[in-house]
Design a protein around this nucleic acid. Structure first.
Lengths: 192, 192
DNA sequence: GCAGAAAGACCGATCGTTCTCTCTCTACTC
DNA sequence: GAGTAGAGAGAGAACGATCGGTCTTTCTGC
């Protein structure tokens, strides 16, 4: 089969991109090593030269995705702050659910396939979630919200729900619902 | 290996209970037929006499679980209505997240392993979700909520988020957060 | 007698992983 | 600049284990 990613990229990068696409679209356990190496245009030997095992590739996939999200969020919090930044981050989530290839939250989906909380994959997921919760809390505190901790937890609930519902229900409606719910949570009044 | 469920039950019921336990605790793809028949104390032949394939067992597992939830919710809506019933249903969810063997929402977890929306498993999931959304909307309408459709969608978001976060974060905190968020959503004022 | 269950061998396919062998490109030495 | 070692990558066979699923045979209970 013809490789799906450009052959100019380094094999490791090709593998990681292919893994990211397939793992997200079809799940971790359903995508085998055969499929990965074929579509990445590499060989099995090259696979195991860069990753000790498939599970390490799964972890790398999630960490790379986390990195991308952090960059996107940092770009927002770098230019704005408080309430405006908060709404931009939520916009990001809402827009995500409406994307063509949207298949829910990569981290929640992966967690569903790894029951053991001590597993390296679950640890990577927990780290990403902790980072995101922290960002929300800081933004809420910066916006002068009276209870940033509680509000951040509610936002996480809404985010998790939106990312799950976005795949199972109508994404457009979910997006609207999320935006309205967050708007109500933050209050219609003025804030920093 | 010794069977884990009582041998007095019919083989089909033994299989279904074992499947429910293992699928929920460890995921669908991770649990093989070998494991199922061993722990259920039946043979492969008996398995395939009752279910055409493993995927039919997965569907039966989800439909049985849906049935159980419907019974629990019906018991609530049968004795009370409106706002009181609504809060009881939410209590049910909050308590669920704190259960010892809680591992998130069985339907969301299963959906993560079945990307194809047309798959029979996904259809069963969609049916359950549609039923639940309908119940929430009716209860909200009965409680005199001005926008039952929107509020029901927010409740679904909160529910999905709570069931996911309940496994990944602190379930006690998630429970509190959910209850407060729902309370705020419904308004502190009086209702039917 | 007959259906359903137990027991377990068996199927091809696929799982994740390791292996050998060849080739190419880079980098260092003289 | 020429020669060479060595790492990285391609190609593909092979590993044992397990996957979902089918088969035959024996036994039990109504």
């Amino acid at each position: 089969m013809t490789p799906v990613v450009e052959s100019t990229l380094h094999p490791r990068e090709r593998l990681l991109r292919t893994a990211s696409r397939l793992f997200y679209a079809e799940g971790v356990h359903t995508v085998g090593v055969d499929r990965l190496v074929t579509e990445a245009g590499i060989t099995r030997a090259t696979f195991y030269r860069h990753f000790p095992s498939k599970e390490d590739l799964v972890e790398a996939y999630l960490r790379a995705r986390s990195e991308g999200i952090r960059r996107a969020v940092d770009a927002i919090t770098g230019t704005s702050g408080g309430r405006a930044a908060l709404l931009s981050v939520v916009d990001l989530i809402g827009d995500d659910t409406c994307r063509q290839d949207f298949r829910g939250c990569a981290f929640l989906n992966a967690a569903a396939e790894y029951p053991d909380p001590a597993h390296q994959v679950r640890v990577a997921i927990a780290e990403h979630r902790a980072w995101f919760s922290g960002v929300l809390r800081d933004l809420l505190a910066g916006a002068g919200h009276p209870e940033p901790d509680h509000a951040a937890r509610v936002l996480v609930l809404l985010r998790d729900g939106a990312l799950q519902s976005g795949e199972l229900d109508d994404p457009q409606v979910v997006r609207e619902t999320l935006l309205r719910a967050v708007h109500d949570l933050l209050g219609t009044g003025r804030a920093a």
